[in-house]
Nucleic acid binder design. Structure first.
Lengths: 349, 349
DNA sequence: CTGAAAGCGCTTACAG
DNA sequence: CTGAAAGCGCTTACAG
């Protein structure tokens, strides 16, 4: 209950001096500062953020908006952001926009206008032009992860390049029958991933002179169950079966591996599988993947937002560049087997 | 930027009346209220929570403390709590205590004393007596999920009973060689799960007159990878191999299924596996489990906290009772095969 | 370097 | 039902 006044009285100074000593703003003699700190400590003083925020306009609180927290990618981003924010002494207010679309639109603009936030990190969020304009009007730092908010600094991996890289990896192993399972519509609405990852795939194919086979391109939600389903459909028909599949997420890729096993196909002998993410399950299944470290992205967004609040130019790496990824080769990809599919046994000659 | 004064001027009333009309506290004539609402709407008024909180002492913000957000259980709880809070018009401040232990202790008490929170939901948190005392001193509603905070209302499943139930399911199928893989030390520190789940297992065994075999009790972190490892060790030695294993989590259980497959054992013919959780992966693997709906637990905690803030007695179901679980029988459990293990072929007589 | 004073934008007894 | 006024607990020009 001890307020700034009690501390002031105890230390024999004014409330103004206590405020300056504690916040570090303004000049205070070392001796005075020491006395104030001691008094504050002794009285167990804890500042009221509300009062402080009201008076100063700063809140030491940043908002994180995401369409889900239950799904892997988002939970990792949140974990990274929460840790980084805590370390910097900031609170994190979470806005989960998953529910009704009605909620969604109001959330973002209202949250900032309520003046409880110094900045916001928007994850995989797509806004209408109007929403974007409202957001801008508030004039607080905004950093985006994964989603495309035109004009705001963004943390994101180079979707196109990593998709091309994953596909090239398959090509370079000698595969020519390369399928792709992208994200479903659900994802495309929030993210823009589906599209970009697919174009990286198509690019690498064209580059290698491999014709695109529409029947080898399908989609799935970002889940193991979705991957199993899509994988079964893709791999069930032997004469058109691909020898490799590039999946837009590790969860899908794990599903495809499971689907292959279920069909009696060996990975990687009969079919190579590569994903994107760096999901923990990948290790269990020996999945070759491109890791994108979502927790690190969350931490990077925090760093960017903090820099913006200090009016520092955001690090060029963040502004123009891409968040780094890591190519992890495990055992789910290999040169295609020269033997025909197991259900068409080679003649014994 | 429009404040309450502008709205008051526009509506031709005092700021006090605007406050009353907008908050619903105090009496305002219907006509006046209408005018105020219209003005507020027209001017795009958005209340400053900081000012409101400072003046009233209420913040419309509840804190959620958890040791991790990246792990499945916690991400689901958070998802449920975030959605429920948003629907009730509350903000959610997230405190991820995962990092250093130094952080941990300060977080909980400071967060409340900073007066930014009306209440807190503590997930799987264990506190020292001192921390607990400090927390109580703040006199704000606290609701616990999963963790044992003596004296605070708690949302939790009946660990003992569901563990006994899972074990009995195996017993009733005719298994007598029933192993158990519990949570590791890491978990036991935060949760108290390991212990309780194991005692339910032991109870059911004793009840059935089955002697406890120490070599069939091991532990693992709550992950698929951990389950694979523990499962391999458990199932690799044929002469002491159990015919069924009760896992303290679905992730562990999935790992065990994978380990079994890796060893060439069939599930459920050679080994039955049952988990606890209701993880999405369970469906993919046909896992029999006891679902505990963590998202629902998060929502229930929000309901309890809201009731507490309204000074309503917490629903008896929440106070004394347990959060309901659901027994989901899929295809990973069955009667034990009468044949001996595959590596000891029955004599051809 | 330090203090007195105004002010941040609401809420809420207190009167009427 | 409504208004004038004090107050929530800090911060920050403004003087000195």
């Amino acid at each position: 209950m001890a307020g700034i006044k009690e501390v002031a009285a105890h230390a024999g100074v004014s409330a103004a001096t206590v405020s300056r000593a504690l916040s570090g703003n303004g000049k205070v003699s070392a001796a005075t500062r020491r006395r104030v700190l001691a008094s504050a400590d002794e009285l167990g003083f804890v500042i009221s953020y509300n009062a402080s925020s009201l008076a100063s306009g700063r809140t030491r609180n940043v908002g994180v908006v995401m369409p889900s927290v239950g799904r892997w990618y988002f939970s990792q981003v949140l974990q990274g952001a929460a840790t980084a924010l805590l370390e910097s002494g900031y609170d994190l207010t979470l806005y989960n926009t998953s529910d009704g679309p009605g909620h969604r639109e109001s959330v973002l603009t209202e949250m900032l206008r309520r003046k409880r936030l110094d900045a916001v990190i928007a994850v995989a969020l797509r806004l209408t032009d109007e929403e974007l304009a409202q957001l801008r009007a508030v004039d607080k730092p905004i950093v985006t992860i994964g989603g495309p908010l035109p004009g705001t600094p963004a943390i994101r991996v180079d979707e196109f390049s990593i998709s091309a890289l994953a596909t090239r990896h398959l090509v370079s192993l000698g595969h020519t029958r390369i399928a792709h399972i992208g994200g479903g519509k659900e994802l495309e609405r929030d993210f823009q991933l589906g599209g970009t990852r697919r174009s990286g795939y198509e690019h690498a194919l064209k580059e290698a002179g491999i014709a695109l086979e529409e029947t080898w391109v399908s989609s799935s939600e970002f889940s193991v169950a979705g991957g199993v389903e899509a994988g079964k459909e893709l791999l069930a028909q032997p004469d058109i079966r691909p020898t490799a599949v590039f999946c837009a997420s590790d969860e899908i890729a794990v599903g495809v591996i499971l689907a292959a096993r279920g069909l009696g196909l060996r990975v990687p002998e009969d079919v190579s599988v590569i994903g994107i993410d760096g999901h923990d399950l990948g290790g269990v299944f020996g999945l070759t993947t491109i890791s994108q470290d979502p927790a690190g992205q969350g931490a990077a967004a925090v760093a960017a937002v903090l820099a913006l609040m200090r009016d520092e130019a955001v690090l060029p790496a963040t502004k123009a560049g891409f968040y780094p990824t890591e190519f992890i080769v495990r055992s789910s990809t290999a040169v295609p087997s020269t033997s025909r599919p197991p259900d068409r046994r080679p003649d014994r000659t």
